[in-house]
C-alpha cells in the first residue's frame, strides 16, 4: 500500500496543536506504517519534497509569511485541513481584530504593545521593524479567508483522539466527519 504523504505547519499558532499530534503517543508508530511526513516542523523540511495527500495547518494568518506558507500548502496538498481554533476562527491572536475598526488599526496594535507604559520599558519608543521580520497584516485572517479549506478539526488544541480519528479515517478512505464526542471548541 502506498503511504499517504502528510505535511504540517504552524502559522499564527502556539504549537499546541502540534503537541497534540505528539500526544497520539504510540499510535503515531501505527500511523507511520501508512503515513510519511513531508514538510513539517517534525522533519524540519522547509519546503515541499513532493506533492502531499494531506496538509494540516495550525494557526491563522497574522503576517505575510503566514499567507505565503498557507498558499504553498494549498498548492501542494490534495486535502487541506485546518486544525485548532486559531486556524479555524483566529483563536487568541484574533483578539487584536477588536481594534481593526480604529482609524489605523495596525498602528494602534503596535502602540498598545510597544509604547512606554506601566508595564513596558521602551524609552526610545522603538517598534520592531527589522527587514528580517515578516510584515504584520492589518488584521488576523482565518485560513478559510485566504485559501479553500477542505475540513476543520476544532479544539484548542484538538485532542489527540480527534486528530487520530481524522488521520485514520483518511488512511482508510472513510468520511472524515468527527463524531460529536470528539468535537470540542476548547
Amino acid at each position: 500500500m502506498k503511504k499517504l504523504r502528510l505535511a504540517t505547519t504552524s502559522l499564527a499558532g502556539c504549537f499546541g496543536c502540534h503537541m497534540s499530534l505528539l500526544d497520539m503517543d504510540e499510535r503515531l508508530i501505527d500511523l507511520l506504517q501508512f503515513i510519511e511526513f513531508d514538510r513539517s516542523p517534525l522533519t524540519d523540511f522547509k519546503t515541499f519534497r513532493q506533492r502531499c495527500d494531506i496538509g494540516l495547518v495550525e494557526g491563522g494568518c497574522c503576517n505575510e509569511e503566514n499567507v505565503r506558507v498557507l498558499r504553498a500548502f494549498r498548492e501542494n496538498c490534495d486535502l487541506l485541513i485546518a486544525i485548532g481554533q486559531c486556524a479555524i476562527m483566529g483563536g487568541l491572536p484574533v483578539m487584536r481584530n477588536a481594534i481593526m475598526h480604529a482609524e489605523q488599526p495596525l498602528n494602534e496594535c503596535l502602540q498598545t504593545a510597544y509604547a512606554p507604559s506601566e508595564t513596558v520599558w521602551n524609552p526610545a519608543c522603538r517598534i520592531p521593524a527589522d527587514a528580517e521580520l515578516p510584515l504584520l497584516l492589518d488584521k488576523v485572517y482565518t485560513c478559510a479567508e485566504v485559501v479553500k479549506i477542505d475540513y476543520q478539526i476544532p479544539g484548542c488544541p484538538p485532542s489527540a483522539d480527534a486528530l487520530w480519528y481524522v488521520l485514520n479515517a483518511a488512511v482508510q478512505g472513510n468520511p472524515l466527519d468527527l463524531p460529536p464526542e470528539l468535537i470540542r471548541y476548547d
Binding site: 485546518a82 478559510a144 484548542c156 468527527l178 468535537i183 471548541y185 476548547d186
Partner: peptide
C-alpha cells in the same frame, strides 16, 4: 473564543454545535 470563555463546557450554544456536528469549513465570514 471558547478557549477563553468561562462558560465553555456548560454553554448551550457550544453544546448544540457539538450535537449538530459543526466542523465544516467556514463558508461565512466571522
Amino acid at each position: 473564543l471558547c478557549p477563553g470563555c468561562e462558560a465553555s463546557g456548560r454553554c448551550e450554544l457550544q453544546a448544540m454545535a457539538y450535537r449538530l456536528g459543526i466542523t465544516d469549513s467556514n463558508r461565512l465570514p466571522y
